[in-house]
Structure formats: structure tokens, C-alpha cells
């Protein structure tokens, strides 16, 4: 049985660079990324390795998969794992970054932001509607909508924060030119 350790992500919209640095530090201490699922990194114990990690967001069609990963492997980036539209790669320190120009890197942030924005709109709309139902009704409907409202609020809050984080990244990039 191999030693497995699980580390939660802080949310990639907030701390992508910090997460990738964390994975690098873990690898130096012999813990290597094997899987990334539901915001949790699964690390497996092994030899110490001096590597850097990078993540890309792209929803790949079945006929795009081969070409996409081939380009990374040709550029000396090893594919570690994928979860839905997130793909994590590792390489020796000093390898050319996966994004070498600011324009494409900007596109990456936009691709990350699109589903986040959708999620934010859905959850916030639901929360507002439930709040209206809750305040305008009484009895059993009020009770049900009250509980649903609280549940929706729990989802809406992180969704909104994540969306704000993507806006912040975009603002930063524009400011830097």
C-alpha cells in the first residue's frame, strides 16, 4: 500500500500560483501529485524531485485530446492529471512556461472565468428568488423556501467570491498591460 496524502486547494481562481508552488515544495519533500479531484490534490510518497507545476484550463473535444497533450510533451511538460477542463503538468525547473505570451495567458483567465460567471449568475438568481418567496409567503412554503434560501446562499457566496477573484485577475493583467 502506497502512502497517500490529500491536500485541499484554496480555490484555483484565488491561489493558482500558490497551489502550484505548494505542489513544487511537496515534490521536493518526496510527495508527488497523482490526482486532482473536487478541489483536492492527492499526493503519493516517493523520491524527492525538483519540478515545477503548471495548470491549464481547456475543455477538450475527443478529437483534440491527442494533439493537445502531444504539444505539451514535445515541450518537455509531463501530463500529471486532469479533472474535467483542468490539466496539470510538471516539468524540470527552467522549462519554457506553458504560456509564453501575455495575450494567450489572458485567454486562459477568460476561459476560467466563463463557467464561474455562469455559476455565479445561477446561484445568485436562485438565492434572490428564494428570498422573495420566503418574505412574501407564510406557513409551510415559507419554511421550505427559508431552508432552500440558506442552502442557496451557501452556494452563492463562494461562487460570487470566485467570480470576483477572476475579475481581479483580469483587472491586474490589464493594469500590467
Amino acid at each position: 500500500m502506497k502512502n497517500i496524502k490529500r491536500v485541499a486547494s484554496w480555490g484555483l481562481a484565488f491561489s493558482e500560483a500558490a497551489d502550484m508552488n505548494m505542489l513544487r515544495r511537496k515534490a521536493l519533500r518526496g510527495w508527488h501529485l497523482k490526482q486532482f479531484r473536487f478541489g483536492v490534490y492527492e499526493l503519493e510518497q516517493g523520491e524527492s524531485e525538483d519540478v515545477i507545476y503548471s495548470i491549464d484550463y481547456r475543455l477538450l473535444e475527443p478529437d483534440e485530446v491527442d494533439e493537445y497533450f502531444e504539444m505539451f510533451s514535445f515541450a518537455s511538460w509531463t501530463h500529471v492529471c486532469s479533472d474535467y477542463n483542468m490539466h496539470i503538468f510538471k516539468a524540470k525547473k527552467g522549462t519554457v512556461p506553458i504560456y509564453s505570451d501575455p495575450e494567450s495567458a489572458q485567454d486562459k483567465t477568460n476561459r476560467l472565468a466563463a463557467p464561474v460567471k455562469k455559476m455565479m449568475i445561477y446561484t445568485v438568481t436562485t438565492t434572490v428568488i428564494l428570498w422573495l418567496v420566503m418574505t412574501l409567503t407564510s406557513g409551510i412554503i415559507e419554511t421550505i423556501s427559508k431552508w432552500s434560501f440558506m442552502f442557496a446562499l451557501i452556494l452563492a457566496f463562494p461562487a460570487t467570491m470566485t467570480y470576483l477573484a477572476t475579475l481581479f485577475h483580469r483587472y491586474n493583467r490589464i493594469k500590467r498591460g
Binding site: 505539451f72 494567450s104 495567458a105
Partner: peptide
Amino acid sequence: IGPASLYT
């Protein structure tokens, strides 16, 4: 040119 830039 990095692979992600090239692909994009």
C-alpha cells in the same frame, strides 16, 4: 513558444 500559447 510555450505549448499552451501555441495551442491557444
